[in-house]
Design a binder for these strands. Structure first.
Lengths: 188, 188
DNA sequence: CGCCGAGTTGAACTGAATCAAGAAACGTGG
DNA sequence: CCACGTTTCTTGATTCAGTTCAACTCGGCG
């Protein structure tokens, strides 16, 4: 749980009383692998910190789901667009492996925004860092070939390639599992 | 200039004194078309509100630039990733048409964050809404065909198709100018 | 053991890239 | 206001990466 405080303190100085207030809102929950945290049409009510495990976000499809994002231990995750707008999500979030989360509800977070000095700053920093991730992703999708994206993934997150089913990776990269299987074969 | 205040008040109530403080920092500037606002390697020092005009963001390339975003009158624009991290931008921002901007500097904005009640909230809301745009974009790039994206652009921003050179649109959609020219021909 | 989902491989097809050339529009200087 | 050069757009031919459909292998699990 202290990793959450240090996560914040990378960007914002947090007083003990603010941390006290914040941490009192956190709930720890364990999930089995392949457990849905949020389904399409539901409103995201939690912001989660991943203690251990991995999560994917995807738009369910008849044949192959469209997996567009992953989150790993040490990161915050949430259907953040649904969360901040409090409107139904058009995608699902689901554990890939057994996962432990520390969660805070939307209402409690609003409370923190109102009642702590650092709350607003943390909220802004969170939104900003999520924005940065998406900018990077956008440029990757427009700028790089599928093979580039696979190789970059490989260098940035080598563990990921072993832990995550190929079909999720393929979807994330923007191609079919067959195509990724061929790329893999070609470059190995 | 009042459109800026109403822009904010869509989400946050702003006191007269806060608005006074905020607006005192704004500078109005006129730009000719095809004027670079920020070049690759420079650090974005301004957040701009577009009074009139249109702007594109692109990564310069030998042959065809990679245009990945547009901004129009009534919107805020900035190389926001460079702005919030205060690190060099890997892309350029440039007016497409003659453009009028109201600008605030990074330092003045930090001042507003510190010294007004609504500053942090506005900062958070800004980051959140930019994040939402990028989420939408990501799903569009993964979920839709080039033709889908063109047609959606066409219905959402019909004026855009007339004002903006085809090669910029093509790049934004993620295809070559030739390919877009053919799509255009086919569906007309 | 038998089943099922995940991954691999093959063959035919397709949307878009690339290379190339010509037509149209655009801006600038005389 | 026209003439010229430059850029943008269009069109054609070829190539290529990735899709689709289909069959087969492999590993885990009831």
């Amino acid at each position: 749980m202290h990793q959450i405080r240090s996560y914040f303190e990378k960007t914002v100085k947090m007083s003990d009383s603010d941390w006290e207030f914040f941490s009192s809102k956190l709930k720890r929950t364990e999930y089995k692998k392949r457990t849905a945290l949020l389904r399409v049409g539901e409103v995201e009510s939690h912001l989660n910190f991943i203690e251990t495990g991995s999560i994917r976000m995807f738009i369910p499809k008849e044949e192959n789901d469209l997996t567009f994002a992953f989150s790993f231990s040490g990161q915050f995750m949430s259907a953040y667009d649904s969360f901040i707008t409090q409107t139904p999500s058009n995608y699902q979030t689901e554990t890939i492996t057994d996962t432990v989360l520390w969660s805070i509800t939307f209402d409690d977070l609003q409370d923190i925004y109102r009642n702590t000095d650092c709350g607003q700053i943390i909220g802004r920093k969170t939104a900003e860092s999520l924005f940065l991730l998406k900018v990077k992703r956008e440029q990757s999708l427009l700028n790089e070939s599928a093979e580039d994206r696979y190789l970059n993934l490989f260098t940035e997150q080598p563990h990921l390639i072993k832990e995550i089913p190929l079909k999720f990776l393929a979807s994330y990269i923007g191609i079919t599992p067959q195509a990724l299987s061929r790329i893999r074969k070609r470059i190995s």
